[in-house]
C-alpha cells in the first residue's frame, strides 16, 4: 500500500531535485577586477559569510600563500571553514572582502572562468559529483564545457582513465562502481582538464581503507611525478603526513602553518585540531606521557607492532 506512495514521492522528489539544480545553476557569483601577484595561490585578508544575518564570519581575515608544485594539507574541525576556503579559491562563492590571486591573476568576474580552468576540484561524496551517464561521459563533462573538439576529447578521456587505472570501466554506469572507483573517475575528470592546481576536499573520507589508500597514492603520484600543485583538505593523518606543509583552520581562521613532522609532535592535541588520530599514534602519545621513549617518526600499525616486539625483547 505505501510502496506506490513512496514511489510517487520519489518521482516528485526527482522533479524537485531537477528544479533545484536548475535554480542553482542559474545563480552565479560576481567579482571585481585587479592586478597580479606571485605564487600559484595568494590569498589576502579574505573575509566571507554565508548570510548577512551571520554575526560571525565564516572565513575571517584569511591569508594564505601556496607555492607552485607544493602539496598543502588543510586540517581542522567539522564546520571550521575548510570547504568554504576551497570554494572561495575556485570562485564558487563571493567573498565579502579581500583578494585571491591564482597563477598571477586576480579572481574577478571576468577572470573567473579562466581561473577555473586552472583548478580542478574533487569533492567528498563520490555520488554527488558524478554528472555523466557513464564513466567516459563523466570524464568528458568538463571537456564538453570547455568546448573541446570531439577527437581531442576522446584522446584525453582515454589518457585520463589510464592514469587512474579505470580504462576497463569506460562504459560502466555509476551504479556499477564502488565509492573508490567513482572518486578515481572524478580524478580522471580533473586530469582530463589539465589544471595546474587540484583541490581534494575530503575526497577519501567516504571510502573504505583500500579505496582510501589507492586515492592517497594517486594524489602522491600526481603531486610528485606529474607536478600538480595539490591542496588536500582532510581529517586523515596518513594523507596529512604526506603533505609538504599543513595548515590548521579553526573557526574560519588560519591558526597554524607547520611541517607535518612538527605537527605530529603535538600528540593528543592533534585530535583537537580535527585529525582522526589512529590507534598506534595514540598509543605512542600515551607511552611518551609515561616517560617511555618512542621513535619520533610517524608509525602505522605494522611498524608499531614491530617496535613494541623489539622493545620487549630488549628488556
Amino acid at each position: 500500500m505505501v510502496v506506490p506512495f513512496v514511489y510517487a514521492f520519489n518521482i516528485l522528489n526527482l522533479y524537485f531535485f531537477m528544479f533545484r539544480i536548475m535554480v542553482l545553476l542559474i545563480l552565479k557569483t560576481k567579482f571585481e577586477r585587479e592586478r597580479t601577484m606571485d605564487g600559484i595561490i595568494d590569498i589576502k585578508d579574505l573575509c566571507f559569510r554565508y548570510s548577512q544575518e551571520n554575526e560571525k564570519l565564516d572565513l575571517s581575515h584569511v591569508d594564505l600563500h601556496v607555492n607552485e608544485g607544493e602539496w598543502l594539507a588543510v586540517i581542522g574541525h567539522n564546520g571550521s571553514g575548510k570547504s568554504t576556503l576551497a570554494k572561495a579559491i575556485d570562485g564558487l562563492i563571493e567573498p565579502e572582502s579581500g583578494e585571491i590571486f591564482v597563477d598571477g591573476q586576480k579572481l574577478t568576474e571576468e577572470s573567473l572562468w579562466n581561473i577555473r580552468k586552472k583548478i580542478g576540484m574533487v569533492f567528498q561524496n563520490p555520488d554527488n559529483q558524478f554528472v555523466g551517464a557513464d564513466v567516459e561521459g563523466d570524464v568528458a563533462f568538463g571537456l564538453e564545457n570547455q568546448g573541446i573538439e570531439r577527437e581531442e576529447m576522446h584522446i584525453r578521456v582515454k589518457e585520463a582513465l589510464q592514469v587512474v587505472n579505470m580504462q576497463d570501466f569506460a562504459k560502466h554506469e555509476p551504479v556499477r562502481l564502488s565509492g573508490g572507483q567513482k572518486q578515481r573517475v572524478a580524478i580522471a575528470g580533473v586530469l582530463a582538464l589539465r589544471p595546474k592546481i587540484v583541490i581534494f576536499d575530503e575526497s577519501t573520507s567516504m571510502l573504505d581503507p583500500e579505496g582510501r589508500m589507492q586515492i592517497i597514492s594517486l594524489i602522491k603520484q600526481m603531486n610528485r611525478e606529474e607536478g600538480f600543485t595539490v591542496i588536500s583538505i582532510t581529517h586523515d593523518i596518513d594523507e596529512a603526513s604526506l603533505a609538504d606543509r599543513v595548515v590548521v583552520v579553526d573557526d574560519g581562521k588560519i591558526m597554524g602553518d607547520s611541517l607535518p613532522e612538527e605537527l605530529f609532535q603535538k600528540g593528543n592535541e592533534l585530535i583537537d585540531l580535527g585529525l582522526d588520530v589512529p590507534y598506534p599514534q595514540r598509543l605512542k602519545f600515551e607511552l611518551n606521557k609515561r616517560g617511555i621513549q618512542t621513535p619520533s617518526e610517524y608509525m602505522d600499525e605494522g611498524s608499531m607492532v614491530n617496535w613494541l616486539s623489539r622493545s620487549i625483547l630488549k628488556n
Binding site: F17, F123, F141
Partner: peptide, 17 residues
Amino acid sequence: SFNRAEDLATAMEARGY
C-alpha cells in the same frame, strides 16, 4: 536530495559548466 542537488551544482560549476 536537496543536499545532493547543491553538491552537484557546485561540482558542475567547478568543472566549468
